[in-house]
Design a protein around this nucleic acid. Structure first.
Lengths: 172, 172, 172, 172
DNA sequence: CGCTAATCGAGACGGTACGTCAAGTCTTATT
DNA sequence: AATAAGACTTGACGTACCGTCTCGATTAGCG
């Protein structure tokens, strides 16, 4: 059923994705969909949550600059290309329209989760790094904003510059 | 008519805002709305574009750190509290669902516009600042991402930390 | 639902009868109306078809002149007074504007049906009666034309004269 | 302007004929149309009234049977083929929907007018002919009914039979 | 092993917004 | 002053999707 959601998202886009369509694509009665998820947003969240945890992992290089860059690249590709990334953006979009979805997204906190890992690894080399919540948005914010506003990511060299910028700022 | 849009956005939210509702609130025929704007997104864009230019201006302090912080505070308040900010977020949200809206938002480029001013003013004190497109998302990305993901802004001290972080990183 | 159509036709007239109105009067969704009838004409046809078969029956007197007159009186009253008759006239009217309705009306052939019965019964007393299609319009045409053109029927004595005229003409 | 109405009726049919369309076709402002005719029906009536008087004239043969048949043939062709005939049928159709149009049509009394001439000429050969109003509908009713109900007229031999039938009936 | 009961797909239902169309009124600029 | 052009409010059109609600058919567990 979640596959049906993923398929539909890629095939017809979020705007044209309907509960009726999901049910039909999954070969399932409409009532059955409603039995498990109250809203389209909940289905989307579940449909992408696991994928996020699988796809959004930075390669563990061991060197701070490479670790950050690696994560940024993965994040950029995820948001721009991955179906799960599309789902996530759709969700974030819906959150701007609907407070219930906003709560859902905030609680899931998908993006920060992955950033946390890499930041913890990098912290020893960046003693002046602020607390995690701020550091996380400093790291990912530029990429997220760029993708949401333009639909395209940042080129790799800008990502590298961004990683370098942060590392320099986080030195004492 | 654009007032009706603003009012409705505040009163009922984006999700419940309909072309029908806009027309009725404005005391206008539905056809008349369609005559001037093809989509809800175009109305929203026009409804908030001017407000953005009015509201989203950093106080000109003259000192780099204060300039950046001033802008960040204004941006944060704009996104969280201003009706025009709500409209902008709704628009950015719709852009995730609909490529046509994405193009609209990208072309309007509302956020970067204001950031550009403050960055140009600050540049002399921050010689290592990257080119504007990247610098702009480095500046505003964290705030934008935080607001979109949680609906709430960053507290003032974190904004200050962020400004300081960037300034330090942009030193040679 | 067909009752709602009949009611509306009598209450507001054909011109002011809308699909929306029918749905509301019947306490039914608009889509439900469209699910069963593609056009207003189809609803009308169904709304009056059965009534026609019930109302448009000549009393079986047994005497040729009385049989014809009886039928003419019934037809005249049906067209002028009965809700089903109004529906039929509305339908015939719409048929002049819309070829699809014309086909519908032609195929239903509601008027001739009833006339056929009485003509078959009368034929033994009227050996020179032409073939049924012509005889039928000779019988009913004057009444139909009169009602359509004026909205009022023919007085009983003229109907009697007409019956007598036809019977005389159909003698060898 | 009336030409525009005639043209439109033939080109797009009554159902698709709009006031806007008439005005544009005539190269005239919409308000100007409304200044002279309050309703579509009034325009139609005026557009066909004169044509009726020109087209709906029986050839004056001098022999009763031929006179009647001639008129029936002309009437049949008029109703089935002539643009003015189409307009007249559209008008008669609208009259079933709208009492105002019904009054208009009744007062114009277009059909009977022509029938009256021929009946007056034939009366000397048909002493038992009823009063004009009935005789007129006896003559034209079958043709009118046939055309309205099926869109097609009666073949010439049936028209001849009908004329003969009436003449026989109208003998003493 | 047969019967009840739950669950399922399918899809009809009452609603409501969509974007379009024509109605009839009004304003404006031209002639 | 009368016109064409066309913007205006209104309201029906037919469509799409919503979330709820029946339906039989299919299982599944229990007697």
């Amino acid at each position: 059923m979640l596959e049906a959601v993923d398929d539909l998202l890629v095939d017809v886009g979020y705007a044209a994705m309907t509960m009726k369509g999901i049910a039909e694509r999954a070969g399932v009665g409409r009532q059955t969909v409603y039995r498990w998820w109250a809203t389209k947003a909940e289905i989307l969240l579940e449909a992408c949550a696991e994928d996020v945890r699988e796809e959004l992992v930075a390669p563990r290089v061991g060197e701070a600059r490479e670790d950050l860059l690696g994560y940024l690249v993965v994040l950029d590709r995820f948001l721009v290309e991955s179906p799960a990334g599309l789902a996530f953006r759709a969700l974030l979009g819906e959150a701007q329209h609907d407070p219930a979805v906003r709560a859902l997204v905030r609680d899931a906190d998908l993006l920060a989760l992955a950033a946390r890992d890499v930041l913890v690894r990098v912290r020893p080399s960046a003693p002046a790094m602020p607390d995690l919540p701020l550091a996380a948005v400093q790291l990912i914010g530029p990429v997220v904003t760029q993708v949401l506003a333009t639909g395209e990511g940042l080129p790799r060299d800008l990502l590298a510059t961004h990683a370098a910028t942060l590392l320099r700022a986080w030195q004492p």
